[in-house]
Design a protein around this nucleic acid. Structure first.
Lengths: 236, 236
DNA sequence: CGATTTGTTGACTAATATCAAACTGTGTGG
DNA sequence: CCACACAGTTTGATATTAGTCAACAAATCG
């Protein structure tokens, strides 16, 4: 059952009948175990299949001409990070494993066939892509209006909310195997500054990030500092 | 023909048969002339119709709890800025006129009917939404990796490219009725700093922004300073 | 025409970047 | 088990970018 996690994920935002779920489970796919830091889709690729993160984390990123990397999303198990490859000729970002991850690949023709047969699935997938876009919009707000502290708090609040929705976060902590340098590339600040911000949070007893685990000691503070409001996640 | 500009816009990115175009032209809609700075869709709204910018400009924005505004997109004539309202329960941003603008509204049920009847139109619209998301991703790169100069250059390069594609930009200039304060909210910098960056560009003979008109004197420099690469616009 | 918004300037401050060095932890091979 | 290498983190010093505030000038609008 390669796509069980994906169905759990879809059901966070969409009602899905057992029939539809079963149809999704029957999608032919090939899976691959990838080590951390593996780029498995590249900017400029012409996609013929889309992928599902089965376990671990991936992220999407872009390199600028000046050699800077911007991380655009974190994609935990269940995510479909290149769904729009179905309707676009080219992929406009790199897709990279953050941790060792298992990734399933589904041929576009199978997806298209299923969408044609079951319009509710087409709708669910379009909806999923729309929420993906909504998360990008909030990412813009994060970078455009918040200082370094608030950016980190907001990102962690979002991750917690999304991971909790699929059972991947406990009350006060979750697995998130990221380096400070990667956080820096996600938040648009330097890794030195990420380090200092984390230290402030530790000293204030708000949170800790250590060895692939995020601990949120004071979630109320976290939400307040990050100015976090979960409307944009469109969870039921 | 309320949606002629929209069709021109769709044809930038998608092949559309005459039949499909005609079906789109027959969509029932109501239009409205709105003054500048009018918020006509609000964050939290439950959408029942979607809109097409017929003339002028709109923008999408979000307010943070701290009272800061982040502009998320500029939407010229032809744009469908809330297409994803078709698949989401709530709108997660404000939609505001930048200039006086004519806006057409199409009931979701008419859109859904048409999508059901003509799957190529459904595809075209999904594709449109996917490109919208791609532009958000690049907006993240702009804010996360570029300094103030490059942000402005990159934004103007994007606008030029998109406007030229639908015939709304001449070789070296286009209409864009924006204040420096609005630019500041789009670029994540202060309006004072926007002013200084513009002055630098003027002094260097690269560009000018004046009285609702953007003049690009040295496009090569503009693209270079902005680090602009148009892959993400997915234009044919 | 006055009223209001927008643009411009200068002085000062705050946030964050950069650079370089040192420190910590973890895994590897001898 | 130790020594080493490596990646990641931490620290301090300094530089740069951009923000804030306040005043004024120039456009624009009714």
């Amino acid at each position: 059952m390669p796509t069980a996690m994906m169905i759990r994920r879809l059901r966070v935002t969409t009602e899905l009948s057992e029939e539809d779920a079963n149809a999704l489970l029957k999608l032919p796919s090939v899976s691959d175990d990838l080590p951390a830091e593996t780029t498995f889709v590249r900017e400029g690729d012409r996609p013929t299949r889309c992928c599902v993160i089965m376990s671990g984390f991936a992220f999407r990123s872009k390199m600028t001409d000046e050699g800077r990397r911007q991380i655009l999303s974190f994609d935990p198990a269940g995510d479909l990070p290149d769904l729009h490859g179905l309707v676009l000729d080219r992929i406009d970002y790199d897709l990279v494993t953050l941790s060792p991850a298992r990734v399933a690949f589904i041929e576009h023709r199978h997806m298209n066939q299923l969408i044609k047969e079951r319009s509710t699935i087409g709708r669910a997938l379009w909806r999923e892509a729309a929420i993906d876009a909504s998360i990008f919009r909030e990412w813009i707000v994060r970078l455009g209006t918040k200082d370094a502290q608030a950016r980190l708090a907001h990102l962690l609040a979002e991750l917690r909310s999304r991971l909790a929705a699929v059972g991947l976060a406990a009350a006060h902590e979750f697995e998130f195997p990221i380096t400070q340098s990667e956080l820096a590339d996600a938040l648009g600040i330097s890794s030195v500054h990420v380090n200092r911000v984390i230290q402030n949070f530790r000293a204030a007893g708000v949170l800790n990030i250590q060895r692939s685990k995020v601990t949120l000691n004071d979630i109320e503070q976290l939400l307040k500092i990050g100015g976090f409001n979960d409307l944009y996640l469109h969870q039921k």
